[in-house]
Amino acid sequence: MAQSTRPNRLFRNLNAKIAALPMIATALVVFIGFTVWTIVHSFTKSKLLPKLDFVGFAQYERLWGTRRWLVSIENLAFYGISSLVFSLTIGFLLACLLDQKIRFENTFRTIILYPFALSFIVTGLVWQWILNPEFGVQNIVRSLGFSEFVFDPLYNADVVIFGILIAGLWQGTGFIMVIMLAGLRGIDQEIWKASRIDGIPSWKTYIFVVIPMMRPVFITALVLIAAGIVKVYDLVVAQTNGGPGNASEVPAKYVYDMMFKNQNLGQGFAASTVMLLSVLVILIPWAYLEFGGRKGDK
């Protein structure tokens, strides 16, 4: 912009730099600085207060030897994979249904998406009530004559994660549906005409033509769901608070409890570092494919 005079490079475009200061500070101090700080402190034996008393990987050894953490990881893996599979499938199917040039499309979309506006706390509490064995679904089925019917996911350690999954899916599938619908709308109508002329049934067109074309949309949805899953916290707190016993603990809750309840900062730091690593495992290949690949094309 300033070709004629070249005073000091630092002061060129000064206003823009000043305006971008909050962003620069956030990026450097919070996102990089704070993350590095936590990672460094995860190698110390900080308890109540953070201290630089290095103990190597001791916190991590303890972490992976803790029953509660292992349950958390197991839950997260199960919840994560199920909610990925279900929200992608259900979201895509619903989007296909809405894409059939139906009437009241807006009404249906509004209804399916509204839970996404609600907080996880509200979601968790509603489903806690619906799944309440004394009054909710179990009670109703029993009163219909099936007196042995059992449906108490929130009180049964073996299936509690399903109870959370039901609530999580109710809240989030609408969002995936909207992304998928936008993807479907982005598909050229000529594709549909061509496949119709060739006499290909529409389900085949969906599977063999449309889905491969929507690959970027699926990947975006996948990354968004995955990044959200690792953060799962409020839903569990509201619905079960980790119970019964430790059965529905999740890593985010482990971190919070270690840092702010059990005064075991080192454990919290180590656990959050593991959480970060698990996100990076997903994020880096995606970023590489998405942005690295794009540069290569142009």
Binding site: F31, T38, A271, T273, A287
Partner: peptide
């Protein structure tokens, strides 16, 4: 960095 930050779990930044 900022966009990457959107995906970092908050848990790693809350204590600092």
């Amino acid at each position: 960095i900022l966009i990457f930050g959107a995906f970092i779990p908050y848990q790693i930044m809350i204590y600092p």
